[in-house]
Design a protein around this nucleic acid. Structure first.
Lengths: 229, 229
DNA sequence: CCGTACGTTCGGCGGCCACCGAACCGTTTC
DNA sequence: GAAACGGTTCGGTGGCCGCCGAACGTACGG
């Protein structure tokens, strides 16, 4: 009522187009894409993509970096990523048709990155296991316990100490429709998991697959049953 | 990438219109409005409002209840309220012009309800005070402490014990741009504050004003300085 | 320096959609 | 039963916007 209405509508309007929505979803992989890549992905002419990108940049949803004849673009910041995530979670995904798409979506449901943390069944399983082991409290709120802090220390995953934002927050998943671990601690965990080869990225997308080593380590350190993944 | 794109765009499209956005913001007061009230508030013909409402209902953002010749409508559930809140927080509010609007927005900034909990400077002040007193942890996450649970007990504010969702979560405020307390516990707190006359609703809007009694009690139980409000 | 590749600008087209007023329907009131 | 009221449906209209292809500007590479 203070003039938020028009601003809210303008923000929503940026995402109200299928092409722009697809661009933002693609950018959830936290990488910087070129305008041409996005055009091809969305199946529109380069000129059309250019216009869409300009709107998203003007609306502060995207950040651009010109480099030579390329225009690299990525999500403006974590807040934007959270916004896209949140809105996606409010959506019942349309049923998929076609074998190829089915394969891809099954892989995404199994495990993927959600901007900077792990999501899908993998993300949920890790979160549930941490709850069960008393590393994470979800009754009085959503926070790491003392044991949880120790767990990170034992695994030698450093946590930002001088961070103003809470170490963890919850993020609702659009495939599982369950809360899973997000926030700075989850981002560090995700990096460690990928760096140590517990999981690897597959395809050019956000999908990840747990390696045999990962299955073993996740079982050992969290009690995650391989069957859950 | 699984067909979320079009769904996301459709959801955003519902909020991408100024009139529909204004309706949703008005409904953040958790009350049920009639179609005519919304039409008048938004300054459109009743026929236009009717069409907008039908779209919002079809999109599951609103719930309707026909009663006699009236069509009462309200936000579908807590999740929708959270979505509207979240998106509003991503918006830089437009500068307000005009004395009347300025008064109204100043009142909203001072204190208001945000669906089911307190927001504005009042909500932020309470949250900060709870942090300072060790009732709420915000470093390892966002959760009530044991002392926090006791505090609710001492004040005889009952908390849902068999709730699956965390008792508290954080909610970003669009006037203060600060996190404040939300979730079931915050909802009960808000109800208690209003029932006990610590604050009263003013106008027909979501704005609330702290009473002298409330200033006293908030100082006594939380150490909130009256000057902060 | 010329060909190629990436991106932008522009004109034009087509479709969608918010809006209104008028006619209509069901409910409430007198 | 008539009048008033809340809400809906239906044409019609105007404007906005996503899309494309063509032309242009600009970087890279031989």
């Amino acid at each position: 009522m203070t003039g938020v209405g028009p601003e809210l509508a303008a923000l929503a309007g940026l995402l109200a187009d299928e092409t722009r929505a697809a661009m933002c979803l693609a950018l959830l992989d936290k990488r910087a894409w070129t305008a041409g890549e996005l055009a091809q992905l969305c199946g529109v002419a380069r000129s059309t993509a250019s216009e869409h990108i300009s709107k998203l940049v003007a609306g502060k949803l995207l950040d651009e970096r010109r480099q030579g004849r390329h225009r690299y673009v990525r999500l403006a910041d974590d807040d934007v990523a959270r916004l896209i995530e949140t809105m996606s979670a409010h959506v019942r995904p349309a049923p998929v048709s076609g074998l190829r798409q089915h394969r891809a979506s099954a892989a995404l449901a199994r495990g993927r990155t959600c901007y900077d943390h792990l999501a899908g069944r993998l993300g949920v399983a890790i979160t549930d296991a941490m709850s069960a082991r008393g590393l994470l409290r979800r009754d009085t709120g959503f926070a790491l316990t003392g044991a949880g802090l120790d767990w990170f220390a034992v695994l030698e995953i450093s946590l930002p100490s001088k961070e103003k934002r809470p170490l963890v927050r919850s993020c609702l998943d659009w495939t599982e429709r369950r809360d899973h671990l997000a926030g700075p601690a989850a981002a560090h965990l995700c990096r460690a998991v990928l760096e140590r080869g517990w999981a690897v990225r597959i395809g050019s997308q956000r999908a990840v697959r747990v390696t045999p080593l990962g299955l073993d380590e996740l079982h050992r350190h969290l009690g995650v049953e391989p069957a859950e993944l």
